[in-house]
Design a protein around this nucleic acid. Structure first.
Length: 530
RNA sequence: GGCCCUGUCGUCUAGCGGUUAGGACACGGCCCUUUCAAGGCCGCGACACGGGUUCGAUUCCCGUCAGGGUCACCA
């Protein structure tokens, strides 16, 4: 059976982690069973520049590899895919409901409604609105509205249950006597979201409505719309919400910033709290100034753009999101895109909320990096190096060769593309930048200077200057002196690179080449006053 | 407040009447390497609580508690 699912983002300017997880489940379901995944833009109520606010969302999906079969920029035979262009459909649906006695005009003012609501509140009773024209015959309603347009309400049938058979939540029901007659169209003729969604889902022949849990309650009135419109119900799956991360033990938050709460939904609002000092540092390290961070409201860990900026692999993010609230079995964590597509099923969606864990995402991103070819690693790393002005595009053959060797030497240290800056920086800067801590802890220790002089002499004779040869030379030297070979590594590394961590030291030496290594050892000696 | 949903290590999860309650992230230790990663081994650590049903409950039922969602002319 070909299935049709949809995701209906509103153009907010960024792709939210929780939203993309919902979209992913929709998409995965289609990949698994075959069918179409539709992007429908919910732009009925937004004043901002829509095209501009939509682009980042489309870019985000493309980056993640989540393609849509119908929607913006590609069209499809069920269009238009912007709700703002579908007003006729909503109007027709409302007319049909009025004519068939399923909807009626309601002239009550906001003040009257508020008063009713308050009275119910005061009496500690549930407020269930029923308009005065509820029982007015359909023909008369039509006349009334033609003469004096107003708000249209749906006539909720009384004395029964609204039933939602949910693929995740199971058999859910609600007494219709507890559902107030909802407004489906404003006096202005614009439809309400809850209703427009149903009209669109029917028109677009959506077979599976997969969305966040907060819509479950809306669904009770929606199934009544479906029924009144005479359309067959789709299957429903209401996903558990994604919550904020649990606060890290010992993490500090700036004054006035609330720590994350694992019981709270990861919300679009209030994202500033996720820009912790650590996060800010991460962004600073890849070249974002505090002003730029403040100016871009999408640059925080609740958005997809954040992870893209930091050089996370999209497959890693997808893998993480896929496993958030869903499991394949009792042990699988790492999955390729192909494995996810082949194995995703709704029946293994968990039904309790899941909190977002950036640490696990980071780990998974690293696992995916391990599978990448050298070419892909280079391609992903270059933009970060260019932005940091460590290399210039286009890459010449020498730089590319050098980069290949550096990335090769880095091995699994590269988890995110931005990690390239930490490790490749010391290789690509013309002069070493000596880390004060390293100088103090290692270079300035008594005897180090003499040691470096002798190491330098030993290295000078190495030919060829490759890792095996230099290692052997230093090994021999250490044996000669009766010291442990390993004790030479850190002084040498720091003298040459300026920093105390990095790839294997002999690998490092060979990348620099003999003359540069000897020059840098002299530099270090001069610096510590020898 | 009414209605609905949810409750397994700090986190993500497996479990679907009988398990020493399994795996993963994180954390701690050891090994490897005198760097940092990666890898290997070990450890810490959970069935919210109280009643039932049952020979036996993490699992089924009912309460309690806790959290969440929703009750809009927002999406």
């Amino acid at each position: 059976m070909a299935i049709r699912t949809r995701f209906a983002p509103s153009p907010t300017g960024y792709l939210h982690i929780g939203g993309v997880r919902t979209a992913l489940f929709n998409w995965l379901l289609v990949q698994r069973h075959g069918g179409q995944f539709i992007l429908r833009i919910d732009d009925t109520d937004v004043e901002r520049n829509k095209a501009e606010a939509l682009q980042p969302i489309l870019d985000g999906f493309r980056w993640l590899g989540i393609n849509w079969d119908e929607g913006p920029e590609i069209g499809g035979s069920f269009g238009p895919y912007f709700q703002s262009q579908r007003s006729e459909l909503y109007k027709n649906a409302v007319e049909k409901l009025i004519e068939t006695g399923h909807a009626y005009p309601d002239y009550m003012t906001k003040e009257e409604l508020d008063a009713e609501r308050k009275a119910a509140d005061d009496a500690k009773k549930a407020y269930v609105h029923r308009g005065p024209h509820r029982e007015t015959p359909a023909a008369e309603c039509v006349k009334l509205i033609a003469e004096k347009p107003t708000t249209i309400r749906f006539k909720v049938p009384t004395g029964r249950d609204a039933i939602v058979e949910d693929l995740v939540c199971g058999h859910c029901k609600q007494k219709t006597d507890l559902i107030g007659d909802p407004v489906i169209m404003r006096a202005t003729g614009s439809p309400l979201y809850n209703f427009a969604t149903v009209v669109d889902d029917i028109a677009m022949e959506i077979t599976h409505v997969v969305r966040a849990r907060e819509h479950l309650t809306n669904t009770y009135s929606q199934v009544l719309f479906w029924e009144a419109l005479g359309a067959p119900l789709p299957k429903f799956a209401h996903l558990p919400v994604v919550n904020e991360p649990a606060p890290k033990p010992g993490a500090k938050y700036p004054p006035g910033v609330k720590p994350p709460n694992k019981n709270k939904k990861l919300s679009k609002r209030d994202m500033a709290k996720f820009v912790t000092p650590e996060v800010r540092l991460q962004l600073n390290a890849i070249g974002w100034t505090d002003e730029q961070i403040a100016a871009r409201d999408d640059l925080n860990p609740a958005t997809v753009a954040f992870y893209r900026e930091l050089g996370y692999l999209p497959d890693g993010l997808v893998n993480y999101l896929c496993r958030l609230g869903w499991s394949f079995d009792d042990k699988t964590e790492f999955m390729t895109m192909a494995e996810m597509k082949a194995n995703f099923t709704l029946d293994r969606v968990n039904d309790s909320p899941a909190s977002f864990d950036p640490e696990k995402l980071y780990w998974l991103a690293g696992e995916h990096m391990k599978t990448l070819s050298m070419e892909d690693r280079i391609a992903g790393s270059v933009p970060f190096l260019v932005k940091a002005k460590l290399i210039a595009e286009p890459l010449d053959a020498t730089t590319k060769e050098r980069l290949t060797r550096i990335i090769g030497a880095m091995g699994d240290r590269l988890k995110l593309f931005s990690d390239i800056l930490i490790y490749a920086g010391p290789f690509l800067k013309a002069e070493p930048e000596y880390d004060p801590q390293a100088i103090e802890n290692v270079l300035q220790k008594p005897g180090t200077a003499d040691l470096l002089k002798e190491i330098s002499a030993a290295l000078a004779t190495c030919e060829p200057f490759d890792a095996a040869t230099t290692e052997q030379a230093l090994h021999d030297y250490a044996a000669d002196k009766g010291i442990k070979a390993g004790s030479l590594n850190q002084p040498l590394r720091i003298a040459v690179t300026g920093v105390s961590k990095g790839p294997g030291v002999f690998e490092t030496l060979s990348i620099f080449g003999k003359p540069e290594v000897l020059r840098r050892i002299d530099l270090a000696l001069a610096m510590i006053g020898e």
